[in-house]
Simulated assay, not measured.
Amino acid sequence: MELIISLIAGALGGNIVGGVAKSLNQGTLINSIAGIVGGGIGGQILSALGTGGMAAGEAAGGLDIGTIIGQIASGGVGGGVLLAIVAVIKNALAK
């Protein structure tokens, strides 16, 4: 369940960053794909650090409010960061 939350938050994060920073906008599809991948990576990093998943919410099946908020935050940030990286590389290659 936590991975799904991270993927959705990543897609939202990628599209929000694309909407706010027009120079990073790659279109809805690329923003979403980069966001989903970045959100998954961000969520996995958070879980590996022990701040999410089993460490925080094992008793509640991983669905306590702290875990959910952490997954949303890490997924959104991961999605936005990966979109920014993709946009910078794509813009550099276009020159």
Results as ranks from 00 to 15, higher is better:
residue 84 A to Q: 12
residue 40 G to H: 08
residue 82 L to H: 01
residue 19 G to E: 08
residue 56 A to G: 01
residue 81 V to G: 03
residue 72 I to A: 05
residue 58 E to K: 13
residue 11 A to W: 06
residue 82 L to C: 03
residue 78 G to C: 12
residue 35 G to C: 02
residue 81 V to W: 05
residue 95 K to C: 04
residue 25 N to S: 08
residue 79 G to V: 02
residue 82 L to V: 00
residue 7 L to T: 04
residue 44 Q to S: 06
residue 72 I to L: 12
residue 46 L to Q: 07
residue 59 A to E: 15
residue 60 A to V: 09
residue 70 G to C: 02
residue 50 G to H: 01
residue 14 G to F: 03
residue 8 I to K: 06
residue 68 I to L: 15
residue 89 I to Q: 11
residue 63 L to P: 02
residue 79 G to A: 08
residue 75 G to P: 03
residue 46 L to E: 07
residue 81 V to R: 01
residue 2 E to N: 15
residue 94 A to D: 11
residue 10 G to D: 04
residue 44 Q to C: 02
residue 14 G to Q: 07
residue 23 S to M: 10
residue 3 L to H: 04
residue 11 A to E: 11
residue 51 T to M: 11
residue 70 G to N: 00
residue 70 G to H: 01
residue 41 I to V: 15
residue 13 G to R: 08
residue 91 N to M: 13
residue 52 G to H: 01
residue 62 G to F: 04
residue 45 I to T: 06
residue 24 L to C: 08
residue 63 L to Q: 11
residue 20 V to S: 10
residue 86 V to K: 08
residue 64 D to N: 12
residue 42 G to V: 04
residue 30 I to T: 12
residue 79 G to L: 07
residue 62 G to L: 03
residue 85 I to N: 05
residue 79 G to I: 01
residue 77 V to Q: 06
residue 12 L to T: 02
residue 48 A to H: 10
residue 24 L to Q: 13
residue 16 I to F: 08
residue 36 I to L: 13
residue 50 G to L: 01
residue 91 N to P: 11
residue 45 I to P: 04
residue 73 A to V: 14
residue 73 A to I: 15
residue 41 I to F: 15
residue 35 G to D: 01
residue 25 N to Y: 08
residue 5 I to V: 06
residue 19 G to T: 09
residue 4 I to G: 10
residue 4 I to V: 14
